[in-house]
Amino acid sequence: MPATFIRRIASPKKAVTGLAVAAATAGMALTAAPAHAATTSSAADAKAIAKQMIPDSAQYNAFSKIVQHESGWDVDATNPSSGAYGLVQALPGSKMASAGSDWKTNAKTQIEWGLNYMNDRYGSPAGAWDFWQANGWY
């Protein structure tokens, strides 16, 4: 859309209506962007969330070691070979949807799923870390 066409409009509703009419005239479709949950953009943020969720220091340390090895605390980490995804490298990543629909971007959701997985399969993050040390995976 040329810059000369854009002008200041008094109300946001009129602006959206005007933009929709202009887009329709140009043969374009406007769609609403989906709402997204808050994302965690840094390893420090993810670690702080995990620390709050895992108050026992031994369990937090075990969880942290696994996450450091698996993803480097990168919420978006993807294993190019297996497709495992996220902080805890769930395979497939979509398993984490059981903890929340924002599993692709939200560290808290990924941590919650990872804790549940470690507790269910190994009894605790420490148990998962013991297994990881013996096998190089968990």
Results as ranks from 00 to 15, higher is better:
Ser98Cys: 06
Ser64Met: 02
Tyr60Ser: 06
Lys95Thr: 07
Asp102Thr: 10
Leu91Tyr: 07
Lys104His: 13
Asn79Cys: 09
Asp56Ile: 09
Ala50Val: 14
Trp103Leu: 00
Gln68Trp: 12
Gly86Trp: 10
Phe63Gly: 12
Met53Asp: 05
Lys51Glu: 13
Lys104Gly: 04
Ala107Gln: 12
Ser98Arg: 13
Leu87Gly: 05
Met96Pro: 03
Gln52Asn: 06
Ala50Glu: 10
Asp74Arg: 12
Pro80Ile: 15
Ala50Lys: 11
Leu91Asn: 10
Ser81Tyr: 09
Ala58Asp: 07
Ser94Gly: 04
Ile66Tyr: 00
Ala77Val: 06
Thr109Gln: 00
Asp56Ala: 14
Trp73Val: 09
Thr109Phe: 03
Gly72Ala: 09
Lys65His: 15
Gly93Ser: 06
Leu91Pro: 01
Val75Lys: 00
Ala97Leu: 09
Ser71Arg: 04
Ala97Glu: 14
Gln110Leu: 08
Gly72Trp: 08
Gln59Ala: 12
Gln89Val: 13
Leu91Gly: 04
Val88Phe: 09
Ala84Leu: 08
Ala90Pro: 00
Ile49Glu: 01
Ala99Pro: 02
Gly100Ile: 15
Ser71Cys: 09
Ala62Pro: 05
Lys65Tyr: 14
Ala99Met: 04
Ala97Cys: 04
Ile49Arg: 02
Asn106His: 01
Lys51Tyr: 10
Gly83Glu: 13
Gln110Asn: 07
Ala107Glu: 11
Gln59Phe: 08
Ser82His: 06
Ile54Lys: 01
Met53Phe: 08
Met53Asn: 05
Lys95Phe: 05
Gly93Trp: 03
Trp103Met: 01
Met96Leu: 06
His69Leu: 09
Met96Glu: 11
Ser57Trp: 05
Trp73Leu: 08
Ile66Val: 04
Asn61Thr: 14
Ser101His: 04
Ser94Val: 10
Ser71Thr: 11
Lys51Pro: 03
Gln52Arg: 07
Lys65Glu: 15
Lys95Ser: 07
Ser101Met: 03
Ile66His: 00
Asp102Met: 08
Ala84Asn: 07
Gln68Phe: 13
Gln52Ile: 05
Ala50Arg: 09
Ser64Asp: 10
Ser82Ile: 12
Lys108Ile: 15
Ala107Asn: 11
Ser101Cys: 01
Ile111His: 01
Gln52Cys: 03
Lys51Gln: 15
Gly93Ala: 08
Ser64Gln: 02
Gly83Leu: 13
Lys104Cys: 01
Thr78Lys: 03
Lys95Cys: 01
Pro55Ser: 13
Gly72Ile: 12
Ser81Ala: 13
Pro92Arg: 02
Pro80Leu: 14
Asn79Trp: 06
Thr105Leu: 00
Ala99Thr: 03
Ala99Phe: 05
Val67Phe: 03
Ala77Ser: 08
Val75Ile: 07
Gln68Glu: 15
Ser57Cys: 08
Phe63His: 12
Ala58Glu: 06
Met53Gly: 04
Lys95Glu: 09
Lys108Arg: 15
Asn61Met: 04
Trp73Gly: 02
Ala58Trp: 00
Tyr85Asp: 00
Pro92Lys: 03
Ala77Asp: 01
Gly93His: 02
Ala84Cys: 11
Ser57Asp: 14
Lys65Ala: 15
Trp73Pro: 02
Lys65Phe: 14
Ala84Ser: 11
Asn61Cys: 04
Asn106Ser: 05
Gln89Pro: 09
Trp103Cys: 01
Ile111Asp: 00
Ala90Trp: 06
Ser64Pro: 00
Gly86Tyr: 11
Ser64Gly: 00
Gly93Asp: 04
Val67Gln: 01
Ile49Cys: 03
Ala77Ile: 08
